[in-house]
């Protein structure tokens, strides 16, 4: 009875666009949904460092090198902000990371695709970050305060990421034939996985309805996907590159681009762990975690020694 009442008050707060804060009462399922979503998002940032990190050492100019390095570093920062937001809900970062490493937590499947050429760094910045931004801008208005604030910070920082990628694509598509072919090849490989980033069609998406009611999500997968296609097609035209979709055409009546069917079999294959790089990505994260263990222990041991030293000094003075 009381629980029901609290639920109603909670929903009323959501409906009146009030932000929910860490210590406010919230339905357990709201908390769990948020922890799951925020930690998945954090994992995606951290795993997302790997495919791009793969090209830091090969970036073809020093300007590109520092830009990419700064970008991948930002992703570490974004992972950190998001883990922090999840921690306000009572989750521990180390537990969340453990879930990533043992495979019980998911992350964005896009990062299980390999980066095969320098042009992929351009395509990821342009398409993958472009798709991510659609989602992230929406999340700046999400109902949970700490998550929304983390997203505001992330969106501010992300603004250079897509430009960084698109600028690489411009350089390549205005360059030699070989460079242009690289750019087209990257677009061919990253286009469909980018569309898949928005998740299953609305009719198939099991989380969407409740998340919309709680205003954790504020737009559906299909709405966001459409917005992304509409924004991206003119950018591809400017580059003189061809989007690999024969069904892609402007629909005057809808005021949107129509596009072809997504290969959901491929989507589920990668989600279920059978993408090109699933195992390698997790192995890389596990290696960093394991090799870092003695380092983290050393810092704690030193901090503890210092604390005891200080206490002893205090006792002496007293």
């Amino acid at each position: 009875m009381i629980e029901k009442n609290l639920n109603q008050i909670f929903q009323a707060r959501i409906d009146s666009e009030e932000k929910i804060e860490a210590r406010d009462w919230m339905p357990e399922k709201y908390r769990q949904t948020l922890i799951r979503q925020i930690s998945q998002h954090a994992h995606s940032e951290v795993v997302g460092m790997l495919p791009e990190g793969n090209w830091i050492t090969r970036a073809p100019s020093l300007r590109r090198k520092v830009a990419l390095l700064a970008k991948v570093q930002d992703e570490a920062g974004h992972g950190l902000y998001l883990y922090s937001a999840a921690e306000t809900l009572g989750a521990k970062r180390s537990d969340l990371i453990q879930q990533l490493l043992d495979g019980t937590a998911k992350y964005s499947s896009i990062f299980n695709y390999p980066t095969l050429s320098w042009a992929d760094i351009g395509a990821i910045g342009w398409l993958v970050d472009g798709a991510a931004i659609m989602n992230q801008v929406m999340l700046c208005r999400t109902s949970y305060g700490p998550y929304a604030r983390a997203m505001v910070r992330i969106c501010k920082e992300e603004s250079f990421h897509q430009r960084q990628g698109y600028e690489i694509m411009i350089a390549l598509s205005k360059g030699s034939e070989e460079q242009k072919a690289m750019a087209q090849d990257a677009l061919n490989r990253w286009w469909w996985p980018s569309l898949m980033m928005f998740g299953p069609n609305d009719a198939e998406s099991k989380h969407t309805a409740q998340s919309m009611a709680w205003k954790i999500k504020r737009k559906t997968n299909d709405e966001l996907r459409q917005a992304f296609v509409d924004a991206t097609v003119p950018q591809a035209e400017y580059l003189g590159l061809t989007i690999p979709d024969a069904d892609l055409k402007w629909n005057e009546e809808r005021g949107h681009y129509d596009f072809g069917p997504i290969d959901w079999d491929e989507f589920w294959q990668v989600v279920k762990g059978y993408g090109q790089c699933n195992k390698e990505r997790i192995a890389a994260r596990r290696k960093a975690e394991e090799e870092g263990e003695w380092v983290r222990e050393a810092a704690l041991a030193y901090a503890e020694k210092q604390r005891i030293k200080k206490e002893n000094q205090k006792t002496k003075v007293a």
Binding site: S84, R149, R153, R296, A303
Partner: peptide, 12 residues
Amino acid sequence: HVGSLHAADADM
């Protein structure tokens, strides 16, 4: 307030 982070001690 801008957020949080993990560190072994105050200096860090």
